[in-house]
Design a protein around this nucleic acid. Structure first.
Lengths: 331, 331
DNA sequence: CTGTTAGCGCCTTCAG
DNA sequence: CTGAAGGCGCTAACAG
């Protein structure tokens, strides 16, 4: 029964008949306390419902156990699921997630400065890293722990001082295409995002990989078998119409996203096989296959990376870059 | 140029040639400091890039300026946009958002206890309030400030001790239906969520309101003009087929969500007018009208409510319930 | 292994 | 209007 008033370490100390320090030790370095006293103290902690005051602890240790995460406008089909996975993971690690708004990189740097100066964050998670994003360098120059969700396209991806976790979309699309080939499809088209999306280019490459490896088409022939467009249903629908005109014999379409795949579905009514990306409610509802990002693993890897950074200062012992394999959801 | 080391209030005091206390006053009660000294101190603050240490301040004042928000599994089409609106609003109010995972109400209460005991949260925002949700009562019994996004269906909606902010979906659907009527539609069907959704029932009522007010159908006739189903595209498609069979002359369909509307769109190819809810990328892409929730206003109202609770203890001076009008996005 | 001392950075009280 | 003293709850360093 937790009380309305705050239970402090002294209350526990008094109740257990030990000093405040011993209580602190039980919590932070239990191996330094004799088992008998430890049990005694733990019982009092339980009985009084004691929880250490986070602010006091932070003030004393100047560590906040809090990671900051920027949220920006614009629809990501997986952002909320990523957030949930992250929240689930932080639960098990005694970490907190602080959310802040960020609509531009400059905006974000302002917030970082502010959060740092007020000393209530000790690591940052950056999502939606854009081409030549200034934030990683800024954070590194300010000696901050951070990890990216997504490769830092445009800068040196192998830079060991910039930790990142990403999903191998190329491999996912490649395996998905392979799966279609193994099931007898031959005229497999691809609909992707426009050239300015590095992620889109990566996924396009995965389709090319599978198609050329299976010797279904020459690289030149592939050039008429894909279209790049915007990420919405109407665009997907139009893209399919274009493809279909020049390739009437298409029997499957690999799409860079579930949204675009839904557009194709509208046009085809399920007559041909389509596949999407991100395993959103759309692909579940329309019952087509999709490449799923392992959000739970991503969250784990990101937090591992951040926690490693705060413990070991020697970066080279651990890998700071993780490319995780996606999962094929076959329907 | 912010330094790597922490700038404290003493540094500012020394730089400005005043005592630490005066600096504190400049920040917290500027009207008590002579303008000349105030300028002097502000200049030093600016120069050194001083920001009060959040943990120290929290420890001293036992107020955390942090609101906690639960995130749970399951797809909400507006959750991430709500989060963004909230983050944007907290920015302007010197508030922080702490995220925690919550998959069951019990889960959430555990977290609340933990966050309260560690004293790093001073208000809660509850979303996706379910029927007879135990959380509001729990929080009230523990003297916590909180506000709900969504009405507490199943409990006393008028209970002044439970603050909530919601959007008048009934009115939104009513106005949307009215709009269709004004544009010459007569056989306007409705596809909603199953009976167990209070929100769904509310929106259904809005369609009934408009249809009976316009005397297009008798209440009895309306009973064959709507279908309740699941919230996915395939269900929307099927629902339309069912409706169409018994009502071949349907010329418009008001849908309880963009997702369901998209299902209808798949079946009709834009031949009849459809409308959705929540103004998601789907309705934007397929170019149909939608009822939009004013997320920015919701965020503001929720934070207003919470901040009012911490200042004035007398609840009756302010309204603790806000039903905001949605916006029609006509396409 | 346990207790004492001191202080993290800030703000509230109360003198001046 | 400004300054000095004290302590919020906790833990690092040391002493016993």
């Amino acid at each position: 029964m937790p009380d309305s008033l705050l239970v402090t370490i002294k209350d526990v100390a008094r109740d257990a008949g030990v000093s405040a320090q011993t209580v602190s030790n039980v919590i932070n370095t239990p191996e330094k306390v004799r088992p008998a006293t430890r049990q005694l103290v733990l019982a009092s902690i339980q009985k009084l419902g004691y929880k250490p005051n986070a602010s006091a602890r932070r003030l004393r240790t100047s560590r906040s156990n809090t990671v900051a995460l920027g949220i920006h406008a614009g629809d990501s089909p997986i952002f909320d699921r990523f957030l949930h996975a992250l929240a689930a993971e932080t639960d098990t690690r005694d970490l907190r997630i602080l959310l802040y708004k960020t609509d531009t990189p400059a905006d974000e740097i302002t917030h970082c400065e502010s959060l740092l100066a007020t000393a209530d964050v000790d690591a940052f998670i950056l999502t939606d890293v854009i081409f030549n994003d200034p934030r990683p360098n800024w954070l590194r120059d300010h000696h901050q722990n951070f990890a990216l969700f997504g490769r830092p396209w445009g800068t040196d991806v192998n830079d060991p001082t910039v930790a990142w976790v990403d999903v191998d979309g190329r491999d996912g699309i490649r395996r998905m295409t392979q799966h279609l080939i193994l099931h007898g499809h031959r005229n497999i088209a691809f609909i992707g995002w426009r050239e300015d999306s590095s992620t889109g280019q990566d996924r396009l490459a995965g389709w090319r990989d599978a198609m050329t490896a299976a010797r279904i088409r020459t690289p030149e022939q592939l050039e008429t078998l894909f279209v790049l467009t915007d990420d919405d249903m109407a665009s997907g629908q139009q893209a399919y119409q274009v493809l279909q005109r020049s390739n009437p014999d298409i029997d499957a379409v690999v799409c860079v996203s579930d949204t675009i795949a839904a557009g194709v579905y509208m046009e085809t009514h399920g007559d041909i096989t389509i596949t999407g990306f991100d395993d959103t409610p759309i692909s579940r509802s329309l019952n087509f296959s999709s490449v799923a990002q392992p959000l739970r693993d991503i969250a784990k890897a990101i937090l591992d990376s951040i926690q490693n950074q705060s413990t070991s200062r020697s970066i080279d012992t651990i890998s700071t870059h993780m490319l995780l394999p996606p999962q094929l959801i076959i329907r």
